[in-house]
Write a protein that binds this DNA or RNA. Structure first.
Lengths: 189, 189, 189, 189
DNA sequence: CATGAATGAGGTTTCATTCAT
DNA sequence: GATGAATGAAACCTCATTCAT
């Protein structure tokens, strides 16, 4: 196992264990064991546990951002592009439930105050541009994009949590309804 | 300070400190100091730190449920009643931002798996009845109430977090727009 | 419950709990609960936990001493009197197994160093006189009485422990053999 | 100091301190200090205080068993072999008084219930065979070997305690008499 | 005298981090 | 770089004792 692989194994182990046990109850020794490295080795890649966790968050957030913008080659109209964003985000959460849970856990804990900004989708200029375009076309409501991105992100998160909690299985029909609900909450009626 | 006051002081200190520092980084000794009692005293009221935190969550969730149903004496039409629910929940979060942050932190951590159900608004039969009524009248979409309550709750949470993060101040105008957006996401267009 | 009853209840609870759980793992609060009194009440009767335990030992040792000398009205010959002593001690242990276990536990722990003397049967002048009589008659070996009392006491203790451990049930036949064995170890052959 | 040395130092310190202060009143911090290691280091070798103590008991019991069977190369007759066993056990106690005191303290405390069997000499098949041989030869009494081993062990223990208590010094003459007394208690007269 | 909540020192154990190998 | 035993501060929790009621 080479250096970069080791680094990845440590990050992966950290994510899985924190997802399962929480920040508390995830000691470095457990991460080392799960990653298949010695405890001291972790410190060759990350100077402290806090940095490790913050780094993990930063990488997952970037990964989520990339997933959000997938499959945009074919243009489509505004509605189709909105649905694509919605489904892209939801699909990422479903494909990587542990990453989703980690991101939510991190976002809602005071760890967050250590990183400069907590702007979930806002960090994607492409999304902001898209929303602004819709506003200018008179299709989206006259709302601040900060509010819009929050509503969009919160909507997908709520549906994903509902599904992962096991309280209601989100099949294709329900997902389509959910995306429509989100669309209706943002477009002018 | 009598027994019941002491118990309350411990719960309050726990909420404030966990809100500020997180589950990790909030030792019992800190809670004791903040509450103005000896460390051992906490154990006269709660058998362990876990129980203390779970108990705190249970009480806050109940308090939130009560706040949600305030001011319902004047009936109003369906839209008015919906807006009242939306504003009630938002008002509770604004009046008790620490409680809100604690609830979110708890809900998104593995602590949650220890309590049987994590059904944010679902636990309020009155809300479910209200939504079912709207569906039967053909005003609300044909959606599972689990999904509806998740969307309603997630909407308010997203707006509250946006405001508390300082990224966008939610004034009366914006709150009205947000409530309208949520309404549009649930009613038939 | 009057004062003297309370004192007895405390001593009894102490003996039972220490027998079951050991010195460690027997907190005062547990003793209080078992005795049916408040924790603070114990301190009206005993100034500290150490004193309570030492006092308990002293009283049980005296009780054992009295049991040892029972039924001596009919004189009997030396052998009969020896067998009586042996059986008296064994009977006391069987009638009060918890007291026996407590006495052994106490005797073999460093608590003992706090009390001036640890002379199991030696504290009974009657026994010493009896043994000295046997020596003078040329029936018992020319041994120090300290050694003789130790051997006698140790013999009964070994048989009692064997029975209480469940490894060998000591019925009347075996008890008679055991007493004979002890007699043979002390008398001149 | 290497790993195995450290482990030994911890066991030795535990034995010495418990012998002196008892199970209660021997905190892990004291053991660590006496052993010359950090408190946490103990947990690299033993998962808990209970396990440490039980492990110590197991190792000492085995050591005692080995000591009991020393010097058997020259066969000797039954009486000589009996005296050898008696003296072997006594010598072990005299050479290792702290181990003896620890073993007695442990055996007489509720810790014992955690280990499956509390069979002092019984665990030595060689001893049982020896005693059975004597019975078949018609030299030893017709007694269960459980009882015989208990009497033999109890006899040596009683003498050792008497000596270590300072109440009677056991010199060679007295030891010979004691062994003879034990022999007489087991052989047919 | 009796109560039992309160105390806080001290118990066992954990765990982030270091460092000799 | 990699290892993992060692460290010791600090975590959770216990419990002998006190004292206001």
């Amino acid at each position: 196992m080479k250096g970069e692989e080791k680094r990845s194994a440590i990050l992966k182990a950290t994510m899985e264990l924190i997802t399962e046990h929480g920040f508390h109850a995830t000691p470095m020794s457990m991460i080392a064991k799960e990653a298949g490295v010695a405890a001291g080795t972790i410190y060759n890649y990350f100077p402290s546990k806090d940095v490790l966790i913050n780094q993990l968050y930063a990488e997952l957030k970037e990964k989520m951002g990339n997933a959000l913008l997938r499959n945009q080659e074919g243009t489509g109209n505004l509605r189709e592009r909105f649905f694509l964003l919605y489904r892209n985000l939801y699909a990422y959460f479903m494909e990587n439930p542990e990453e989703f849970i980690f991101l939510e856990q991190y976002s809602n804990s005071p760890f967050i105050s250590q990183t400069p900004a907590n702007e979930n989708l806002q960090f994607q200029p492409a999304v902001v541009e898209f929303l602004n375009g819709g506003i200018e076309l008179g299709i989206f409501r006259d709302m601040e994009t900060e509010l819009m991105t929050s509503l969009l992100y919160g909507h997908v998160v709520a549906v994903a949590k509902l599904h992962l909690s096991g309280r209601l299985e989100i099949n294709e029909t329900r997902l389509e309804k959910a995306a429509q609900s989100c669309w209706d909450s943002i477009k002018i009626n």
